[in-house]
Design a protein around this nucleic acid. Structure first.
Length: 157
DNA sequence: GCCAACGTTGGC
DNA sequence: GCCAACGTTGGC
């Protein structure tokens, strides 16, 4: 299974992931996204890393799942922006993701929309807001091809 | 900053 | 269970 995960670069971008090597993906508070993370994500799955609210928004590289879903402690922390008052400890989960590669330049949303081979890809649809969702293998491969065509990517060492 | 799309909440 | 109101996401 392949995935797309969105993050605002001002909050946590691909450069930070490259620097950190891996991170925990806290703060998902949408049941559909939660269910995919909890029920379907497995270690080793590849992820398109997407920058939203960016200039340009688009896929900036590849990450991978390095730890499967476990409870998100921020949901229990009243001081956190992600606090969910009264939520049972197992309501919200997070996964850990590792850096794989950063494209030489983003594959912008405009380019994704313009590519016929990516027709139907979730992120190209109007009103697509889900921050975590699966991507078909064909779409994943195509986006990676487009990203690598931008120049030599930076890979994890 | 605007606004369309969507998910969630809460009154009934 | 319906649905209007509200909050959030995210492109532009």
């Amino acid at each position: 299974v392949y995935w797309l995960m969105k993050s605002e670069p001002d909050v946590y971008g691909i450069d930070q992931l490259k620097k950190d090597g891996r991170t925990f993906w806290e703060g998902v508070r949408n049941y559909t996204a939660r269910n995919w993370m909890r029920d379907q994500m497995k270690v080793g799955h590849q992820v398109l890393f997407y920058h939203s609210n960016a200039d340009p928004s688009g896929v900036v590289g590849i990450a991978e799942i390095v730890r499967e879903a476990y409870p998100d402690p921020y949901a229990q922390d009243p001081k956190s922006d992600y606090y969910d008052e009264g939520a049972p400890a197992d309501r919200w989960v997070m996964v850990d993701v590792g850096f794989v590669e950063k494209f030489a330049a983003p594959v912008s949303l405009a380019e994704l929309k313009a590519e016929p081979a990516l027709e139907g890809m979730e992120v190209t649809k109007k009103g697509s807001r889900l921050s975590v969702h699966p991507v078909s293998e064909a779409h994943f491969r195509k986006v990676v091809e487009m990203g690598r065509a931008k120049g030599r990517p930076v890979r994890a060492s």
